[in-house]
Amino acid sequence: MSQVILFNLLNGLIVGAFYALMALGLSLILNLSGVINFAHGGFLALGAYFAYSLAPITGFWIALVIAPLGAAIIGVAVERVLIRRLYGRDPLYSLLMTFGLAFIFQDGLKFIWGAQSVPYQIPSWLASPLSMDLFFLTGYRIFMIAVVAIAVGGLFLILGYTRLGIRIRAGTLDLDTVSVLGVNVRVLRSLNFGLGIYLAGLAGVLAAGMLGLAPTIGDQLIMPSFVAIIVGGLGSLPGTLVGGLLIGVVSGITSVYFSEATEAVIYVMMALILMVRPHGLFGDEGRLQ
């Protein structure tokens, strides 16, 4: 029994890590630019398919790094042409536009790579279990958690110590002042959008190794990612991280005791948390109405 719990705990942690990776990207974009990006799942799938096409040529490792970069470049292009038109407008329009973009992505992926799901090859030494007792502990699962940890650590280092990161954080607090101080806000927003999409693309590549590829791969991840942001509290990136891991683990443990509620439990949890703490666990009071 304890093995079952451990298995589901680990599974929950992995799922939570995906939610967190995706939610961090969504959060970055939402905090700086006020855009709710429903096309995030499309960018995730784009990263995954780039890796699928690249891996046979470059090998697994280079694809892991380059494919999300490809998604991020497309992301910046989309931001320059379309998303920037949403800045300063009612977030409702971001709903309409990014819903539209999500539709286009899904069709485009289907057109280029086909509607059928395809497997994604991972190095064989990553695919085997580490020990007989803990059969579920494949190297790939550990590897995914490690990659997510590195990516999240890297993100917080960038935000904490680089000029770009400090400007992003400052812009989140007061974009006008940052602009007056001579920072090119247009470039800042583009880079920030690219950074968010990079995280989504990375999540896509990792997910492809576990689940295989399909044009709709991002669909099951997007709503829980929003839940992660809200549970953690809008405006707080550490909150988003905690929110993602928390809902993953809670849904993993629920699947042991009451498997029918595996998916519903995160929404119940979010509703309960918001009733007790209307701004989420770590959200700032009164910001981003």
Binding site: P91, M223, V227, A264, Y267, M270, L274, G280, L288
Partner: peptide, 17 residues
């Protein structure tokens, strides 16, 4: 009592439940 994005998200949550 909730407003804005929080209201929107909680209404989603109940729909999803």
């Amino acid at each position: 009592r909730l407003r804005g994005v929080y209201f929107a998200m909680v209404t989603i949550a109940f729909g999803q439940i």
